[in-house]
Each structure stands twice: as C-alpha cells, then as structure tokens.
Design a protein around this nucleic acid. Sequence first.
DNA 1: GCTATCATGTTTACACTGCTAACATTAAAT
DNA 2: ATTTAATGTTAGCAGTGTAAACATGATAGC
Lengths: 204, 204
Amino acid sequence: MKSYHHGNLKQELINCACRLCERDGYTKLSIRSLAKESGVSQTAPYRHFETKETLYASVATEGFKKLSKACHIDADKKITKKHLVEIGYNYIEFGLKNANTYDLMFGTAVGNFAEYPELLESANSTYENMRLSFSKLASDSDEVIAFKCITLWSMVHGLVGILRKVQVVGDDFDEGVGPISTASVIATNLEDHLDKVLTGLIQS
Amino acid sequence: MKSYHHGNLKQELINCACRLCERDGYTKLSIRSLAKESGVSQTAPYRHFETKETLYASVATEGFKKLSKACHIDADKKITKKHLVEIGYNYIEFGLKNANTYDLMFGTAVGNFAEYPELLESANSTYENMRLSFSKLASDSDEVIAFKCITLWSMVHGLVGILRKVQVVGDDFDEGVGPISTASVIATNLEDHLDKVLTGLIQS
DNA sequence: GCTATCATGTTTACACTGCTAACATTAAAT
DNA sequence: ATTTAATGTTAGCAGTGTAAACATGATAGC
C-alpha cells in the first residue's frame, strides 16, 4: 500500500547517494539508478535537486561533516603538539578510508562551493575546528595560526593524494627507493612523519 | 578530395584531447565530439583507443612529460636548496596553470597506471628527476633522499589542491584569517613558504 | 603485377545518461 | 471547501560509451 508521495525522499536520496558514491565512486552514480533504488520514478529526484551537481554538493556536505567529526579534539583539555599530530593522522585516515567521498569534496565535481551555502558552511567549519586547535597550542597571532593550519592541511591533503595514487599501482614495482615503497614507509610511520614536519612548523 | 584513411589520426586525437581537456576539463570531453573535431566518424577513435580511459591515459602521459620538463633542473650545475624551492615552485605553477590536465594525472579518471605502461613510465620518470635533484643536494642515504622527495612532492601537491579549491570561491568571503585569504598569503609568498618547509626538511 | 591480409575507417544499433515539459496527485493554506 | 503549491509520474530529446558488421585501401608474399 504505497502512497503516491514518498514522504522522506530527499533525505533517502542523500543517504543512498552517500552510500553509492563511497562504494563505486561518484562517476558511477546516476540520478536514474538512484531513483530506482528508492523505488521512485526516474525524474522524481529533480524535485529535490536542481541538477546532478546539487546532489553531489549534498554528498560532499555530509563528507565535510564526517571529516569535521574525525578531526575534532575535545576543546576543554589542553592542546599539545601530540594532539595536532593526531588531527593530521585522523585526517589522512579519513581521506584514505573514504577515498571516493573525498574526491567529491576536493575534486572538481562540485565547482563553486559558494553556490551551495550548506556545503560552504560545513567546509568552513571543518577549517575553523582545525584552526581552533592550533590556536590553543601557542599564543601566536591569528595570521600565524591560520598559516600553520593551512600548511598542515595542505600537507595531509597532499599525502592523501600521493598515497592513494601510489597505492593502486601495487608494491611489486619499485623495490627500494621508488615512490611506492617510500610512500609506504611514510604511511606506516605517519605519526613520526607528521611529528617531524609539525615540529619544524611550530618552531618557526 | 579527402582520402578514406586519415593517416595520422591517433596523434591528432591525442593532441586534440589534450587541448580540449585542458580547456573544458576532462569530463566535458567525449569521444564523439573528438571524432567530429578531427573530421572522422564517431567510432573511428576506437581503432586507436580501446576505451575512453585509454585516451585519458594518453592525455595524462603528455601531462607528466610536461610536468617533468617544468621541474627539470640542469644536472651539471651544483644543486642548492634554492634549486629545490624552484622545483617546488615550478611544480605548483604547473598544477595551477594546467589544472584540468592535472586532475587527469592525479585524479581517479585513470584507475591503475600499471595498465598503461607509457603513463607509468612518464610518471615514474617525473619522480626520478625530482629524486635526482635531491640526491645532489646532500649525501644522504637513498632512503632519506626518497623520503625528502616524497615529502616535498606531497607538500606541493597538497598546496595545489588547497589553493585551487579555495580560489574558486572568491576572496570576498573571509577577510582576515579564513582559509581563502590565508591561502592567498601563502600563494603570494610561495617561495618563502617552500623555503621554510624545506629548511626544516633538509636539516632534520 | 596480383592477390590476400590486415590495419583502419564507416554504419548501424543498443543501453544508458542528464534534463525538460506536460500532466497527476495530494498535502497545506486560505 | 476550495485554491494553491509541493511532490510525484510519463513521455521524450539530445547526447554518451561501446559493440558488431561491413567497407576501404595500404602492404606483404607470391
């Protein structure tokens, strides 16, 4: 006894899209398959998402919320360098374990965040969280804090990219000092690595 | 008086694809439009590229060759830290000026480089060039050299990603210490920034 | 030089996609 | 109770990747 109106279609579409995006990558996701999965007509999603990019933006928004949570450090306690390393580590872990969603968040599938207020908000809040943590480590100026924060972010962001690129090739290629094995070494000693870089960053 | 056989179709398709990919982004590129552009039937490209991914791989290969060239330092002269900063700067410049091609090289459009020998070769050779430059700076062990090299690479790779993501939003958003203006500061002082990070890296 | 072969190009066709327009149903507002 | 707006459906367009069957012509062996 299915009613004509679904009742909760938008949220169900988003949930479904998040699941399928992460499972198969966002390129494999089609609005039509999504509609079928929710037992609704092919064009029903268009009542809730103007274009496919709008749907992508919703998935990316969810992604930033999860990333925010993964990188959150309890604000009450005193922040040490160890905490920052932890943030970086958690960031990288998120990027590697949610690789397909991560692509949607940082790739070009969603062109301009400013067109999607919720997305812009969730992305900015991820940044604000990180910045707050840095601000509790030392009494730097706002500019220096922001600078360090962006430096850490680009560092871990870059590592996610390189590690992923190198992982898929497989490790029977460059025994020794090639990019694959080197990246592996970095990956297995991530905390050490982040610690070194952050030490340089914090002291300067 | 056009002959049935084109004569140089494969190379023309690659050139055309490189141009269109960089102009419109690889998602806008279709095999059919490419064929039309070369004045040939819709399915002719399939005689030269098994799938669309194979075509992508060719474009990415060209990309790595250009990147290699952009990051090349003349091997004869003595390498100083300044040269490494220059490499990093050139890398970032390439990533920003060839953003769409860069996506193809480091995104997920081409899944596994190992399936495309020429691509794997050109990507590895980019890495080897960089590693060679590092090896001429100090007498580190191969492992340390590789480590530093991957660290610089992930650093600049991450900066390209963050800078691009933040650029499209526009700079009338977060006056002061938001990610946009901070990234702008880093961008306009790229040499300084790389110098700082590299100094920490080289001394450790 | 003649012919068989094979690389390369064409035509046709299928299943899929994003998206629009016109219409149907029902919940909410007046 | 009636109007209206939100949400759903159906039909259809133009475009896509790709496979199969066929056409053409360059080239290799006789």
